[in-house]
Design a protein around this nucleic acid. Structure first.
Lengths: 252, 252
DNA sequence: AGAGACAACTGGTCCTACCAGTTTTTAAAT
DNA sequence: ATTTAAAAACTGGTAGGACCAGTTGTCTCT
């Protein structure tokens, strides 16, 4: 195995086991190179590896510091490398919504076709909850409403895929409802869309339901795009740690 | 921000957009350094960063490769028990195809809109392979053709989801081509559909491409349904399918 | 005391040379 | 002509020097 890797592991152990405090400064590259008797190149490569793992962060002219995150729980690693890969790429959010538009549409279409009376009952209940709830905290009812529709499609695969996508969205950004609802006129439109969607499904109009559902997702996506463009930054939940967002610990 | 970071970010983006297959080889360090007009050092540092994040892995004397875990095995499969649940239920296959119909349609639509000249070239190449190959063993070219289209959609999420669905299909049944091709008249229809799809995408007709792709999947699904009904059992192959899963280069 | 130049850190980039695996090509031996 | 072994042409890994670019403290000059 490469020396740079061994060193990166040794340093990681030293940091984790040794319980090095966040913001603790690591010896300079030249010092490490000298004391470990290797070239500065391998030190730099090892440090970049640790940087990629989020163990340390490096600031030009100052040095390398232990990240504020960390200990034991390798947290992010559990979620699979896929999440880390997408993290920090805002475009991913819209890619997600692009796919969801299609699938939510299909779910609505199928639901309008295949919903049993029991399904209709559950959807109706979810819809009532959606209308009754305080708009400020209606992320859950919203989720429940869509969930009920998807389940009425009677396609387990579709349920599963949409669920995965929703989880990915929650990891990327606290989205849609939380950000969009503050805007009164937007909320009205969304409420209207929900009502139309509900009626289309209950009265069994598949193509209509599909179009409405797709338009709904599209509307949400566009609204977020607009908000982002006009400066009002989306509330990004940096999955567990804002260690990497570089500009937080500016000057000391 | 450091150049090495920018490059690591750009490479990551490239991997996402390209929907790069696992084990796909990345240009050599010297090549990258030359084409990006930076020193080899920064390339090495960028690569080490990606390595730390688990995006790529590097092998001495061979090169750097996209990590196998990244695009291929998404969150859809890692939910072990779920697969057992679906396994053996033939209806699952049609649920899968139902979802695929939608997504392949979207992929074709987006590909017709967003394909770069490079994408078009790759699709054309895949299409030629598809036509030239012996129909008996053209599972691979078929896969390659659709894969090229999906990648041209430039939506990493879509690439990932469809890839997962395809893997699930392979686990359930070695489907479509292997079973359908024996029928001469079916093969002709499928070849025709492929040609139409190809032309629609290349000449940039999104809605047309979408319809054709959806009809194609639907046709495959219906054909399988028919065959199953008339007694000719589908060839079910329990897992062990290293055969079709796109790229699998054993170590030598 | 305050201002500004300077020196001594820090990491960031570039370069060249060379070592070490891997693959391909070449040339010799059969 | 085929087989086989050496050699060349790749690949990444390490070394170390030179220099650029931020940061910080020091020391002089006013």
């Amino acid at each position: 195995m490469a020396i740079s890797q061994e060193i990166s592991y040794r340093l990681e152990r030293l940091i984790l086991d040794g319980g090095l405090a966040p913001e603790h400064k690591i010896p300079s590259e030249r010092q490490l190179a000298a004391s470990l008797r290797v070239s500065r190149s391998v030190i730099r490569e090892a440090l970049h590896e640790l940087q990629g793992r989020g163990v340390i962060e490096t600031r030009h002219g100052k040095g390398s510091f232990v990240s504020t995150m960390v200990p034991g729980s390798g947290d992010l690693r559990e979620q699979g490398p896929l999440m880390r890969l997408f993290e920090g790429h805002p475009r991913t959010l819209y890619d997600l919504l692009e796919v969801r538009e299609q699938l939510e549409g299909q779910a609505a279409c199928l639901a309008a076709q295949r919903a049993t009376s029991q399904d209709r009952h559950r959807i109706t209940k979810a819809f009532r909850d959606l209308e009754d709830t305080d708009p400020l905290s209606n992320a859950r009812p919203d989720h429940g409403f869509h969930q009920a529709i998807v389940e009425a499609s009677h396609n387990p695969i579709l349920v599963h895929v949409l669920n995965s996508l929703k989880n990915m969205m929650l990891m990327t950004v606290q989205a849609s409802v939380a950000n969009l609802n503050p805007r009164a006129e937007m909320r009205k439109k969304i409420v209207l869309q929900h009502r139309q969607l509900y009626e289309a499904i209950i009265s069994g109009r598949p193509t209509s339901a599909q179009k409405i559902a797709m338009a709904h997702v599209r509307f949400v996506s566009k609204s977020m795009r607009d908000m982002e463009q006009e400066g009002s930054t989306l509330i990004r939940i940096p999955v567990e740690h804002e260690a990497l967002s570089s500009h937080h610990h500016a000057n000391r």
